[in-house]
């Protein structure tokens, strides 16, 4: 299976280069957990101010790849990353690179909403506070919540617990929390998978607004979602990047047979 895929993907993935500047650039990235290899030789260029969707069947390594962009795999025991990931012209896996500073600039939103068990306000101010934000915190809270389209719903109850919100609101709170750090890139790991359709719709609309300001990489198992929101789509299968290109192209005229089978719903 694996060898077959190698043949199929060939040089195809490298043949497509979106126009620079790039927010993130992965070069020959491999991720392994112990003896099992989750991501194999991925090369991927993510242009600034776009939404890039990573799609593929479960276990294809898309979440692992996403988590290697802000070194969250550091916390997984036995995880090993090789290759280079360039962010602002330097390799984030360089010995001199500081993962803490990196994560301050590359935000992340997780699969399940995970607000801190404190007030809404504190959820947002905590990150900027530990990173030495010197500005007006009240303004920061309001701006972030407005950008996450949550302000109108929570403006009167900033002191209440973030856990008291509904699932969709919690997820938007997590997005607001990430925005408050004013990152360059936001990574999203299936942000809507735990939400109902109307919350999902809200978040998708939000993404389209946010890309004016941030670069967004989103992992999703929902192909319709990828089509609706993303500018570029990367299809991964069994750890390899099979196809990468403009979203319309990937879905309407896929170059690889595997991609065609997947987007037409024949497997996965």
């Amino acid at each position: 299976m694996v060898t077959g895929n190698t043949n199929m993907s060939g040089n195809r993935q490298r043949s497509f280069d979106p126009s620079p500047p790039y927010a993130l650039e992965a070069r020959d990235v491999n991720v392994s957990y112990g003896t099992s290899r989750a991501v194999l030789d991925v090369n991927l260029k993510i242009p600034e101010h776009t939404i890039v969707a990573l799609i593929g069947p479960s276990g294809c390594g898309k979440s692992t790849l996403l988590r290697s962009f802000n070194r969250m795999n550091d916390f997984v025991r036995g995880a090993k990353v090789t290759g280079e990931i360039l962010f602002k012209d330097s390799n984030i896996y360089d010995k001199a690179a500081d993962p803490v500073l990196l994560r301050r600039q590359i935000g992340m939103v997780f699969q399940k909403p995970n607000p801190f068990p404190t007030s809404i306000r504190k959820n947002i101010t905590w990150g900027p506070k530990i990173n030495g934000y010197q500005g007006d915190y009240a303004a920061l809270v309001e701006t972030s919540l407005r950008r996450a389209a949550l302000w109108d719903e929570v403006s009167g109850k900033l002191g209440e617990s973030g856990l008291a919100l509904s699932g969709g609101q919690q997820q938007r709170l997590c997005i607001a929390r990430a925005i408050a750090m004013d990152p360059d890139v936001i990574l999203m790991d299936e942000p809507c998978s735990a939400l109902d359709p109307s919350s999902t719709l809200k978040i998708e609309n939000l993404l389209l607004e946010l890309k004016e300001r941030f670069t967004i990489v989103i992992v999703t198992h929902n192909m319709q979602q990828a089509r609706r929101v993303s500018d570029y789509t990367a299809f991964m299968y069994q750890g390899e990047l099979v196809e990468f290109g403009p979203t319309d192209g990937v879905f309407e005229t896929p170059q690889q047979e595997l991609t065609r089978d997947y987007v037409s719903g024949r497997f996965g």
Binding site: L101, R104, P128, N131, G132, Y133, Q134, G135, D136, A139, L140, T143, D182
Partner: peptide, 9 residues
């Protein structure tokens, strides 16, 4: 206000 703000990590 945010532009004026300085981050001191």
């Amino acid at each position: 206000a945010m532009i004026r703000a300085i981050w001191r990590p």
